[in-house]
Design a protein around this nucleic acid. Structure first.
Length: 290
DNA sequence: CACTTGACCTGTCCGC
DNA sequence: TGCGGACAGGTCAAGT
């Protein structure tokens, strides 16, 4: 589900909610798939610990604990991290209305805190995972070794964007920007939205796209990522943030899931095709082949 | 090597 | 209403 803006929204929510709460118990309903650690490590390094800070890298989250361990989390397609405040604070507490509704059949892990609040890791499709790692091993994780630069970081220039995309010269422009080693955090929604903004047909080969077009694509991607963070991300199906709330970017989407509707730029009917193995939305008039 | 496809899962939607 | 098939925000491994 979540791409960079959704994961960033979850990160910001957890950063408000988690610090200073001490873990009192952990239940893994789907181990080892969703949470591979042995119970003995959970007891030693997670129970009794608290979260000091939360970072995001691409679509992954890093919860830094005061035990020299980190909780490394990838939500993949349908993962959610939902915080539910303690019932002793009543329904006014964050997600108080969910008390009694979780865990449910999609709950893979629940992490309880001493104050009675609980963080649920729900994941319908079980592709996502969380794992406890000693902090010095984090950078050795295959995901961390291969992930490209953060598109919203200040030093990431047009020049670097173009150079990195051009390394994938034989593939389609959509496949290139979906490649997490080219840049971090773009997924199917923002790939389609950015390509519409830059007026590039998604199935064009990278070698057919000009530097001028790539420069435009870079700025359009930054625009949609920032806009979406402002809107709390996209809820296409089941994404919710740490407070259980949906994002509203889909109300602003120009092509994604808008097949058969008019292009907001030229009025032509938006089409849906398959590119890079993914459903791909585009305007056949303003996203030209070259 | 570069690139594409299938697998991992559950749930929903669409056509018959 | 039931059933089969395609598809869904991502990433790997295996295939060409």
């Amino acid at each position: 589900m979540p791409e960079l803006p959704e994961v960033e929204t979850v990160r910001a929510g957890l950063e408000r909610l988690l610090p200073d709460r001490v873990v009192s118990g952990v239940v893994a309903y789907e181990s080892p798939k969703s949470f591979p650690n042995a119970q003995s490590d959970v007891n030693k390094f997670l129970i009794g610990a608290s979260v000091e800070s939360i970072d995001r890298r691409g679509k992954a989250l890093i919860l830094r604990l005061n035990s020299n361990y980190v909780l490394f989390i990838h939500l993949k397609m349908t993962g959610q991290l939902v915080f539910v405040g303690s019932e002793r604070f009543g329904a006014g507490h964050p997600n108080g209305s969910l008390i009694g509704k979780l865990p449910d059949k999609s709950t893979r892990v629940s992490i309880a805190f001493k104050d009675g609040s609980i963080l649920y890791f729900n994941d319908q499709r079980k592709f996502g995972w969380m794992k406890l790692l000693p902090k010095e091993l984090l950078e050795k994780e295959p995901f961390m070794r291969s992930i490209g630069p953060e598109p919203l970081e200040d030093g990431f220039t047009d020049k670097e964007f173009i150079a990195r995309v051009r390394k994938r010269k034989g593939t389609t422009i959509k496949a290139a920007i979906l490649d997490q080693s080219v840049l971090a955090g773009i997924g199917n929604i923002y790939a389609d939205e950015g390509l519409w903004g830059a007026q590039i047909y998604p199935a064009r080969r990278v070698y057919e796209v000009t530097d001028q077009e790539l420069k435009k694509l870079h700025s359009e991607l930054i625009y949609v990522l920032k806009l979406s963070i402002e809107k709390g991300g996209s809820t296409n199906r089941n994404y919710v943030n740490a407070e259980g709330k949906k994002g509203s970017y889909m109300d602003f989407a120009r092509v994604f899931r808008r097949e058969k509707l008019p292009c907001p730029r030229c009025g032509t009917t938006i089409e849906k095709i398959r590119v890079a193995g993914r459903g791909t939305h585009f305007c056949p008039r303003c996203q030209k082949l070259g």
